[in-house]
Amino acid sequence: MYEFTYHRPKTLADAAALLGQSEDAKILGGGQTLLPTLKQRLARPSDLIDLGQIPDIKGICEEAGGIAIGAFTRHAEVAHSDVVRRVIPALADLAEGIGDRQVRNMGTLGGSICNADPSADYPAAVVGLKATVKTDRREIAGDDFFTGMFETALEPGEIVTAVHFQKPDKAAYAKFRNPASRYAIVGVFVARFGNEVRVTVTGAGPSVFRATDMETALAQDFRAEALNGIAVGADGLNADIHASADYRAHLVTVMAKRAVEACG
């Protein structure tokens, strides 16, 4: 790693002030992506601002119509939360499937969504559960948060403080994971809110997206069979040594069907 100056502010205001003072500071969440990046010398921030000592951005609470989760809440806490398990079990399942046990013990919700890895799991839930991302200066609709590969709507120096997820009637997440990294080669989150259905796809494209044809079909007939013959186009999907764009397109339908079946 290149050298940096490490900060551990105790309040959000101190963190924001530190971010404002430095030209090239980075926020440190659980560090499960950032630290490996720094170890490979792929980034050279002047300062690391660790948000781990700020109590306001930790924890899970039930609220009208859903759940609010602090940005510095670790994946393991979401996976094991009685509240999440009861109100939105699909979200607990998703968190339980991130990385491995040790990664889940460190990695945070805020870190995951701010990094906006195209293969990360949480983006599928943020869009699928019609979430609102709260920052230290505004609220951003989950639909508008992810703007591209590793890109978000955040402004320089803006800090995510919490994510408010809406409680669906039914939801499930189905993931075809890379067995080594456990990232999603394709992950599909299906959520039903009354007559509305959301089908969100991660891993397949540069950023999470909605499979709108599938949403329309499922809104009329919420069964896996309703997705027969419906596929997303392979154009613009990711292709790498793990899966071609065509294979990813195929997997989207397969995972969507599995998620619908898992909704019960």
Partner: peptide, 29 residues
């Protein structure tokens, strides 16, 4: 591996297992 994959470096921090190659000593202060 030194790349947070192999788990040879697992220790407990406040009772939770973590990969000590993917955490700063300063974070464990």
């Amino acid at each position: 591996c030194d790349t947070s994959q192999c788990g040879a470096c697992v220790v407990h921090v406040d009772g939770r297992s973590v990969k000590a190659c993917t955490m700063l000593a300063a974070q464990a202060d």
